[in-house]
Each structure stands twice: as C-alpha cells, then as structure tokens.
Design a protein around this nucleic acid. Structure first.
Lengths: 338, 338
DNA sequence: TTGAAAGCGCTAACAA
DNA sequence: TTGTTAGCGCTTTCAA
C-alpha cells in the first residue's frame, strides 16, 4: 500500500494540511503536533511523491544555457546532453533556453551575457565560462549560476560540471609514453591562445611525462599563419624528428589529415582530444593512436539536471561540483563515441 | 504560457474528455473531431504532461531485476545503476525488486527464477541471462522481459542492454598490440567455463590481433586447481616467456597481485577487464597496463529505465537494444572508475 | 495553531 | 459520439 500524507492525517485524526506543514518544515505547527506526525510518518514509511508536489506547486523553471559556437562538433555533443535533460525534465515544468554565442560574447563584448543575467524570466543560468572577461558579471549577478565545461573559480558560481584539464594532460602523457617506442622523443602542439585550460593541460602533460621518465622535447605554439595546415609551415620544422606528439588544441583531426597527406611529417604516436568525423577516420587509419574525450554529453546533461535538483528539489548534494570522466578512445572503441 | 488539454478544449468549445480521447488515440471520436483537436493541439504547441497522466492513472510498475552474486564488485556496480533508476522513477510509481541469486539458480535449479516469472505482482523482469538453462523459461513466460549484461538471443526478450563481448576482445587485442614491445609474444588466460561471453571475447581477441599482425601464442584455460593462485601451478608454466597477456576472465586483479608477489612471472603488457580495488591498485603499480570496462552502472540503470519507457510511457524507441560503451582505463583515468 | 476546500493537468467512470 | 464529474497526492489560500 502506498503511504500518502492523507493516509497519515487519517490515522492521526488531524487535517492533511497539518501533516503537510510538518512534512515540509513549514511554520505554525506546535512542537507536539510535529512530533506526532513525524513519528507516524516514520512508522508508516512515508515517501513523498515529488510528482504530485510539483504538479500542485505549478513550478516552472527557466534555465538559460550559454555556450560557444566552435568547435561545432564539440558543442553539438554538449547540446545532445542538454536535449536529454530537457526531455527528462519537461514534465517538471523545466524550460531550457539555449544561447549559443560567438566567442566574442565571452571576451570582448559581453552585453549579450549581461542581458541574459539581467532577464528575470530566467530562473537560473548554466554557462561555459570561456574567458575571464565575464567573471565579474557572474559575480555581480544574484541569479543562481553554474559553470560547465570551463569553470570560473571566483565568480561565486554554485558548482562546476566539467573535466579536470590538468588530469587530461596527465592522461595524454601516459598514453604517449605507453604508445611511443622506447626512448622516443615527444612534443606538444599548443593552440593560439594560451588560456587556463591550455595551461593546465600542458602542466599535466609535463608532470605526466616525468612519471614515465620522459621529457618534453618540443612545445610548439600554433600561430595565425599556421592555419589551415599546409606544407612548409614553421611548426612542421619545429616538430621534425619527434616520435610522439600530443595535440593539446582542437586540431587533432586536422593534424592527422595533414600527416596522412604529407606522410614524411608523421609521428609514431599521435594523441589528442575529442572526437569528430575526422578524428574517427584517422583512428581507423591508425594515424591517430588514441584520443581523450571528456564526456561532453554528460556535461550538458548534468549542468541542467543539477541546477534543477538544487533549485527546485532543494537537494543540497547537487551543490558539489562534478568532475566528468576522461575516456580513452582507440580504434576499436571509437564507434561508441560518435 | 503552458498549453494544457483543458486550454485546447476551451478554445474549441468541446469537453476536455474529448480532447483527451483524441490526444491519446482512444476510441469513440468522430474523424472530424479528431482532426479539429489534432490541428489545434499542433497549432498551440501542446506537450502532454506525463506527470499528471501518471498521477491520475495511478500507475504502479513493479519490476524484478535478477542477477548474480559474484563477482561481487561487478554486480555492486550494476546495483548502483539500479539504485539510480529507482530513485529517478520512484515518483512514477516504479518499485524495483532485486533478486541477487547464486549462480546455480541460473544453471542447475531455476525454480527461483520460474517463481519470479510466475509472480503476477511483477509487471516486468530484467534478467542477466547467465546460462542457457533459463532461456526456455524466459520464452515460455508471457511477461515483458529484457536481458542485461548477458543476452539470451532466442528467448523472445524485448531488448538487451549490455556490451558486445566480441568487440571487447577486439579492443583488448588492440591494447595488447599497442602496449607490448614490438614483435612480443602474446597469450590469453581464460576462465574455467567457456560460455558464450568467453567465446566471443576470445574470437574478438584473435581477430583483433590479426589486425595488428600479431598471433596468439598461448591460450590457457584455468582449472579448479589453479585457484587461488600460488607459485608452481600449471598455467604459469604455460604462460612463461610471454610479453603480453590478456586476462579474459574476472581474475585480472588476482593475476596482477600474483605477479607482483612473484615478479619473475611478470609480463610487459597485462590487460584485462573490469575495475575493482585490486585492479585499481595494480594500475597504479603499473603491473596492469590497462583494463576495459563495460559501464556496468549504465547497464543497471538503462535496463530499468527502458522497461519503464517501453511499458509505461509506451515509447517504442525503447525496444531497441542498447550496446554499452567499452571504456579503456589506465592509471591516469582510473580514479573515475571507482 | 489547525482545518476546509479548491486546484495543478490528466484520466476514467458514468451519463447523456 | 460527447460531456460531466470525481479523483490521483500535494500545496495553498482562506477561514476558524
């Protein structure tokens, strides 16, 4: 038999409203009554029905998700997770508003973000905190905010959902170390802007290599002129003679494609991040030895679910940040990541 | 504004019951009315509230989950997923009944399972189809049944949730091939009973090695007398001189522990399945180079969620089997798998 | 401090 | 074929 508040009230001979007040720690109940009800509830094994509760409270919860346009393949995976959460929570009165903004909105001209933060039809915000420029706005806002994918440590955000970039670099080091021929020379290819994530990855990679008694021979930063890749660019000269290469930027697929067109540049162990069609292809050609993913689908999903748990269900556990899994993808498990 | 059935009925000047009948494809509605309502619903962007529906239908859904006792660490991970689904679905009137049975219940004496299948307080069953003995009982039962972790192909089950063991073996081959020194000798250690899963893994491993131009030098079956591991056992003699070893049975941790105690047996690349404290420890000692997990938490979670989606929400998509991810775990991402 | 009653959105008798 | 009504379990006025 299902134990309901009504059933408890009947047994106790009090009104259902009183039972409700006790069960939800509302004011205006005598200490005696509180005890009586609590005891009975315990005895009968009462479990509240969140469905009925939400239905009757007519809750609506509008959450804005703010993230970037590129790399498209990556944010589309995040969007898959967002869609999943949306579907699961739509009965609970949750509406998701997506704001996929150009990168400038996070760096130079944050007006759009300010607007969202000021919009009072929005109950909570999940934002990929790309660029430090927006941090002050996050701090200034009184809205519940969580960060995902990229954290903003001192922005007063509720929690962060995303990976640990230091570990990410460390894992890359382990992979390169294990996949490269003994005593091979290893290098790293970095992106143009050396942001927090890039710094953490590099640091992790360095320390990870030490663990395997390898040292980093070359660290090359890609410049404006290096993209798109063509033969004869500066970075290729610098990378010459390496056996293992860690691509710490979002160019893994393009590097592999380049190597496959101009095989003389090729390295024995090519490792990097994320998954897309090109990376998938070159896991299959064995041009890429392994890639590391950070479970973007979960990141999108959890950011929204946790905001809902915390704000609507008032589950304090949701305040904890969630560090998402780093997964190793090779040729024979690549199909699970597309 | 929220679009409800009531709102539609008001706009159309018909009763809410009629709208309900159309929206749920119930009988006794004129074709004309059906059209009118459907159009209006479309126009207004009606989205049904599953919560209210379930509340009013007073649905209850009792699902039995049937699985094994050992290896304990593995089924406890499955239980984590079950618990997750339970929590998420308890509002929807779902009750989960767990039956963690000794292995004999799946092989020699399936009475307990027959009982569960005959119990008509149970609405659906999720079962790990260990052993062919139970297949006929599954087929005979008219209850909705899904299999998880281990499939029973011709049992008439609705769907399967679990990994592909062939791929699993293939991935193991890729790992051994990439981690073993060039031209190394590789072997495989098999469990006592050569069931479907073991055969698939072995087959996958064989073919996977071919892909890397390696051949399987040794395949050793563990016997009764080989457990627990001690120096001087038959399998150790057979394994002597190998550079790479794939432990296809649930003994990876114990093999590593043995090697660490008696280092002369040690191999350069030790690879196997699953995650537990011992495996975690030896990923850290580098005794184990990598292990492959099959996302047991998701298996438990999805088995129940999908049964619910299919039977209660009548979502036909849930009929599709789900093949769970194979994940590669090494030292630097092991912490995400404990 | 307590209780009565209306209602969230949907469903299921029962009537018409 | 269509409509009326009483709930599902809980919350929220409003009154006592």
């Amino acid at each position: 038999m299902k134990v309901t508040a009504k059933e408890i009230s009947k047994q106790l001979g009090v009104s259902i409203a009183t039972v409700d007040r006790v069960l939800n720690n509302r004011a205006n109940v005598s200490e005696k009554m509180r005890k009586r009800v609590l005891e009975k509830a315990e005895e009968m094994g009462y479990v509240p029905n969140r469905m009925a509760s939400i239905l009757s409270r007519k809750v609506t919860f509008h959450v804005a998700v703010v993230y970037k346009e590129y790399p498209a393949y990556f944010w589309e995976q995040i969007e898959t997770g967002i869609a999943q959460a949306e579907l699961e929570l739509r009965d609970y009165g949750v509406t998701v508003h997506r704001f996929r903004l150009p990168v400038e909105a996070f760096t130079e001209s944050p007006e759009r973000i300010q607007e969202i933060l000021a919009d009072d039809t929005i109950d909570a915000v999940a934002i990929a905190a790309l660029g430090d420029a927006i941090s002050p706005y996050l701090k200034a806002s009184k809205k519940p905010i969580c960060t995902f994918n990229v954290d903003a440590q001192n922005s007063g955000r509720l929690f962060y959902v995303g990976c640990d970039y230091y570990s990410s670099g460390r894992l890359a080091a382990e992979l390169v170390a294990k996949l490269v021929p003994a005593q091979g020379k290893v290098g790293v290819l970095l992106g143009g802007n050396h942001d927090y994530q890039a710094r953490e990855k590099l640091q992790g990679f360095r320390e990870g290599l030490e663990e395997f008694r390898l040292e980093l021979c070359k660290a090359v930063r890609l410049g404006e002129s290096d993209l798109p890749f063509q033969p004869g660019q500066q970075w290729q000269k610098e990378m010459a003679g390496l056996d293992g290469l860690y691509v710490a930027t979002a160019e893994l697929g393009n590097v592999a494609e380049f190597f496959s067109k101009y095989p003389k540049h090729q390295v024995a162990a090519l490792v990097g991040h994320d998954m897309n069609d090109l990376i998938y292809k070159h896991l299959h050609t064995q041009m890429i030895a392994a890639t590391i993913t950070q479970d973007p689908v979960s990141q999108g999903y959890l950011a929204i679910k946790k905001l809902f748990s915390l704000m609507v269900l008032e589950d304090e556990d949701a305040k904890q940040s969630t560090i998402t899994k780093l997964e190793i993808v090779m040729k024979n498990n690549a199909s699970y990541y597309t």
